[in-house]
C-alpha cells in the first residue's frame, strides 16, 4: 500500500463517525420525512404512496396557506425592524464607545441571550400582559383607562423576536464595522461627498456582508421557531411551525406535518439563494 493510499484510508477512518452520524440521523430522517409527505391519512392510519395531495392542500387550503403567509410576513417584519434597530446600535458601540469598553458593551447587549429561550418569551408576557408592567404603568399615569390588548397578538410575537434578533444582528454588523478602515470615509469626503452621501454610498454598502449574514440567520431562526409565536402570539393566528405542531399533535397527521416542513425548508432555501452572493457563513 502506498503512503498516499494509507493516508486516504486514515482520512476516511477519521471522517467516518461524523459522516455516518450525519447520514443516519440527518439525511435518512429527511428522506423518511420526504417520503412521508407524499403519504395520506385514511382515518387515523397513514397510507404510504405517491400522493401530492398534502402539497396541493398546503397551497390551496386557506387555513394552511394563511400560516405560510403569516410566517413570511412576521419573519420579514422582524428581520427589517431588527436590522434598522441594530445598525445604529452597532455603529454607536463601534464608533462612540471607548475601545476598552466595547467588549463589555457587546457582552451586556447579548446578556439576555443566556436566559432560557422559553423563559425569555414568558418574561415578555409579564411585560405585555393584561396586568403586565406596561399596562399597569400606563394606567397608573392615567394615560389609558382600559388595559391594552398587547399579549396574544402579532405585535407581541414581533416584539419578542426583535428583542432576540437585535442582539444577534448587532454582533454581525459590529464585526463588520470594526474592520472598515476610516480611510474609506476620508477618501469620500476628500472627493467632495457630504456626510449623508458618504454614509449612503460608502459606509452602508461596505457593511452589507454583515447585514445580510445577520439577516439570513435571523430569517432562518425566526421562520422556524415555534416557541415565541406560541407563547406571545397565542392561537389567534398561526405560524407555519405552530401549524406543523398542531397537525402532529391534535390530528396525528404526520404526512401533512411533513409536507409543511418541506415547504418551510423550501422557503429557507429560497432565502439562501436570494442572499448567497453576500453570505459569509464561515465568518460568523
Amino acid at each position: 500500500m502506498s503512503l498516499h493510499a494509507a493516508e486516504r484510508k486514515l482520512g476516511w477512518g477519521l471522517l467516518a463517525p461524523a459522516l455516518l452520524w450525519t447520514l443516519a440521523f440527518f439525511v435518512l430522517p429527511f428522506l423518511a420525512m420526504l417520503a412521508l409527505s407524499f403519504a395520506h391519512m385514511e382515518g387515523r392510519a397513514i397510507v404510504q404512496g405517491f400522493d401530492p395531495g398534502n402539497y396541493i392542500r398546503a397551497f390551496t387550503d386557506w387555513s394552511q396557506l394563511k400560516a405560510l403567509i403569516n410566517s413570511v410576513e412576521i419573519t420579514v417584519t422582524v428581520t427589517v425592524i431588527s436590522v434598522v434597530l441594530a445598525w445604529p446600535l452597532a455603529a454607536i458601540i463601534a464608533w462612540r464607545v471607548p475601545q476598552r469598553f466595547q467588549r463589555l458593551a457587546l457582552l451586556m447587549a447579548v446578556l439576555p441571550f443566556w436566559t432560557s429561550y422559553v423563559v425569555r418569551s414568558y418574561s415578555w408576557l409579564l411585560v405585555l400582559g393584561k396586568n403586565g408592567v406596561i399596562n399597569k404603568a400606563l394606567m397608573g399615569t392615567g394615560l389609558i383607562s382600559e388595559p391594552l390588548a398587547l399579549a396574544s397578538t402579532r405585535t407581541a410575537t414581533v416584539i419578542g423576536f426583535v428583542h432576540f434578533f437585535v442582539m444577534l444582528l448587532t454582533l454581525t454588523i459590529y464585526a463588520n464595522l470594526i474592520q472598515l478602515s476610516p480611510n474609506y470615509a476620508r477618501a469620500a469626503q476628500d472627493l467632495g461627498a457630504g456626510d449623508w452621501a458618504t454614509f449612503v454610498h460608502v459606509i452602508l454598502p461596505l457593511t452589507l456582508p454583515g447585514v445580510i449574514t445577520g439577516a439570513f440567520v435571523t430569517f432562518v431562526l425566526c421562520i422556524g421557531d415555534y416557541i415565541t409565536p406560541q407563547i406571545l402570539g397565542g392561537n389567534a393566528e398561526l405560524t407555519l411551525p405552530q401549524l406543523i405542531m398542531l397537525q402532529m399533535g391534535r390530528s396525528g397527521n404526520f404526512p401533512m406535518a411533513s409536507a409543511l416542513s418541506v415547504v418551510l425548508m423550501a422557503v429557507v432555501t429560497l432565502a439562501y439563494a436570494a442572499c448567497s452572493r453576500w453570505l459569509r457563513l464561515d465568518r460568523l
Binding site: T22, A32, P241, M245, S261, L264
Partner: peptide
C-alpha cells in the same frame, strides 16, 4: 461536498430535524 454535508444541519430548523428523527 463532504464539508457541505457536515455543515448542512445548521441551516435546517430544529423543528424539522426533530420531526424527521421522530418519523424515523
Amino acid at each position: 461536498l463532504l464539508r457541505g454535508l457536515l455543515i448542512a444541519p445548521m441551516t435546517v430548523s430544529y423543528l424539522i430535524i426533530a420531526l424527521g428523527l421522530l418519523t424515523t
